[in-house]
């Protein structure tokens, strides 16, 4: 059975034929998709498949190449975030490929109540992710000033040729990283305390690099977005020069999807 299906709209004449679809996320039936969604399929179009009160956001997929390029990842994210900007959406994890028939029969129909309950919880709310990173020069200056051991080690290194100072440099870096990781906790707690009152819920993810201070997701009521935004901006001004904040959103509520 060799099939080269490239069009989702292929009529269901042949019952052996499996039409693959990509699923971006789930919404309440009747949710209008924003115009201009392109998705990752060759058709450049995104549509919905509805069953009862839920709908899956779907598109075709490329069949002439493996899925998973940078462009595919960005396309997936672009679709769910664009929908999330105005509506509650349950985003899928990449890659979400299945057969067209299975979307209704296996995904939507049997799990409808569960999906609706989660969508209800997310209604009127949207995710923002805040990332904070130390401004290297400023914070390393602080670390040096406060820590005699690090300064001494630094002086020693400056007198040695590079080859001879390898282990001391590793040690120096380790000491600096330890200090940063210690002070991160206090700085992160301060940031989260300030913003928590503006969010329905928050998830603090583990920062991935020593200079990262905070990586937290906030679920915010749409009608409080202005307050939240203002609070972030005020905080950003206060921290300016020492910690740089970056606010991502509106995002699909990836951090607030309950485990299946």
């Amino acid at each position: 059975m060799s099939e080269a299906v490239s069009d989702m709209q292929t009529p269901e004449g042949d019952e052996e034929q499996v039409v693959p679809v990509y699923v971006y996320g789930l919404v309440r039936a009747g949710t209008e998709l924003p115009a201009g969604l392109e998705g990752l399929g060759p058709s450049g179009q995104v549509s919905t498949m509805v069953e009862g009160e839920v709908a899956a956001i779907v598109s075709d997929i490329p069949l002439d190449r493996p899925l998973g390029t940078r462009k595919d990842l960005l396309a997936h994210e672009a679709v769910v975030d664009a929908v999330a900007a105005n509506a509650a959406v349950l985003p899928m994890r990449f890659p979400a490929v299945t057969a067209e028939d299975a979307v209704v029969e296996e995904l939507l129909a049997p799990n409808q109540d569960h999906f609706l309950a989660v969508l209800d919880d997310l209604e009127g709310r949207v995710q923002y992710t805040l990332k904070g990173r130390y401004v290297e020069d400023a914070v390393l200056g602080e670390v040096l000033q406060a820590n005699a051991e690090i300064r001494a080690l630094q002086d020693k290194i400056s007198e040695l040729p590079e080859d001879a100072s390898y282990y001391d440099r590793v040690r120096l870096g380790e000491l600096v990283v330890n200090v940063l990781e210690e002070q991160r906790e206090g700085d992160a707690a301060q940031i989260l305390d300030r913003l928590e009152p503006f969010a329905v819920s928050l998830v603090a993810n583990q920062p991935s690099q020593p200079e990262d201070v905070v990586n937290a997701a906030f679920l915010v009521e749409r009608d409080r977005l202005g307050d939240f935004d203002e609070a972030v901006e005020n905080l950003g001004s206060e921290l300016d020069g020492r910690i740089r904040l970056r606010l991502l959103g509106p995002l699909a509520p990836y951090d607030f999807i309950p485990a299946e």
Binding site: V18, P20, V23, G25, L26, L73, H76, E77, V80, L90, P91, M92, R93, F94, A96, V97, T98, A99, D101, A102, V103, E106, L107, P110, N111, T129, L251, A252, Y254, D255, I257, E260
Partner: peptide, 18 residues
């Protein structure tokens, strides 16, 4: 976000695609 979080489709569907 999209590789670590979100609904995993395989949890729900069992159709295999060749």
């Amino acid at each position: 976000l999209i590789l670590d979080k979100g609904l995993v489709i395989d949890v729900f569907v069992r159709v295999s695609l060749v």
